[in-house]
Write a protein that binds this DNA or RNA. Sequence first.
DNA 1: CCAATTTTTGACCAACCGTCAAAAAATAAT
DNA 2: ATTATTTTTTGACGGTTGGTCAAAAATTGG
Lengths: 242, 242
Amino acid sequence: MATLSRKQREIRDRERLILDVARRLLLDKGYLGLSMDRIAAEIEYSKGTVYQHFRCKEDLLTALAIQTKLKRVELFERAVTFDGRPRERMTAIGAADEIFARRYPDYIATEEVLYVQSIACKASESNQEAMQAVDGRCVAAVCGTIKGGIEAGDLEIPPPRQASEIAFGIWGMTFGSRIVGKTPTCMDQLGITDATTSLRRMQQAYLDGWNWRPLSHEWDYDSTRDRILGEVFADERAAITV
Amino acid sequence: MATLSRKQREIRDRERLILDVARRLLLDKGYLGLSMDRIAAEIEYSKGTVYQHFRCKEDLLTALAIQTKLKRVELFERAVTFDGRPRERMTAIGAADEIFARRYPDYIATEEVLYVQSIACKASESNQEAMQAVDGRCVAAVCGTIKGGIEAGDLEIPPPRQASEIAFGIWGMTFGSRIVGKTPTCMDQLGITDATTSLRRMQQAYLDGWNWRPLSHEWDYDSTRDRILGEVFADERAAITV
DNA sequence: CCAATTTTTGACCAACCGTCAAAAAATAAT
DNA sequence: ATTATTTTTTGACGGTTGGTCAAAAATTGG
């Protein structure tokens, strides 16, 4: 049966409600401010009901992360449809990630907590697998683009280097810069005001370092970016040009 | 008076003991397993006494981070004494950080927690300032080396780029890769087995990307690294070649 | 030896996560 | 419509946090 019973619909809606409330709390009050009691109070159900949806707090957080990672991977998979040279598609992924970071600021809060504490391992099997699957799609999009660059002859990866090493670098750099960039003291020390723009330049420098052609001084990636925002992310453009 | 009273010495020793126990607990059981009660039990003093040393858990964590960041900055400041071209000194800083990460694995646990949760802001003013001061020395070592490269004519930073942007990239990349590299699922997805070596190559690629001469294909930075380990970090060599 | 001061203590509080028998609601059977 | 059965919801409860503070213990000074 494709249609759900009234009860099933109720449960599904309530799960959405829980996740919505949890995300807001996480963003507002941080990881420590996110309590199961508070969620229960806000949704006006008892705590036991919340625990019927998620076996523990970590499971809830993982579900939250999956929900938002899905948003990201959708943007990534849209990005790689960009019609251009592989490195332009890589730039498109960068733009996708920037849109993602702006549109879902709560994501950073979710993901970083998940990385740091050993949270994922407490989540239910199914949620762990689901999260891995989403991450896998993300990796596939990035690594696929890198391999596209190799196949097009724009990039060489002499052993023992691997295509995934480039991806690892981009991933680490992006994730790390976002966390470091959030701490004001660090930014004061460095004197950096616009972490987003800096990250963009850093990523291009990194790809130049792997000698991924066309290099940034041979090609106008700023206008590529404009095209990307116009052609692939027209609907999201507002989010990024604020 | 330079000499401390017996009592003062006792207090100082106890503080060290608390930090030692706390570090061990943090490494063993993670952030959530680190409890003030447990610390009190382990040092065989009451909880109140622990709170006489640190006004709250965050203050203790910050003190822990300072202690270890000091170890790191010492290595950094030794690294920049390496006699060679600026980019070689940059490589020396990379080696210093690698030694640091291996010798003080608990540091990662401390620092990442400090970055992620809004912990630092709850610490005492004095500890906050102390931590900023240590970070400042760290930034100074890195940015100083970058500026050395510019002065030597090995590197140009056309505006609006800044010297600190390179540092920001290295920082974010190093920090981020270490966190991502710790999660086994991510590494499985990427198929990366030796994150440390990958990070090393990533850093060199990044510096190549900024066109910091001599580029990695023009110079044998592996043997530079050997010289660094022999000349500057001879005593720490064992830690890194295990 | 006793009084003044400092240090240490652990009972105590509020908030947290997670459990589970009992209550309430929904469904099925008569 | 009424009763029996199943499902869902509840919130009191246990155990563990971080943090406080009056009272007890130890130290110091006279």
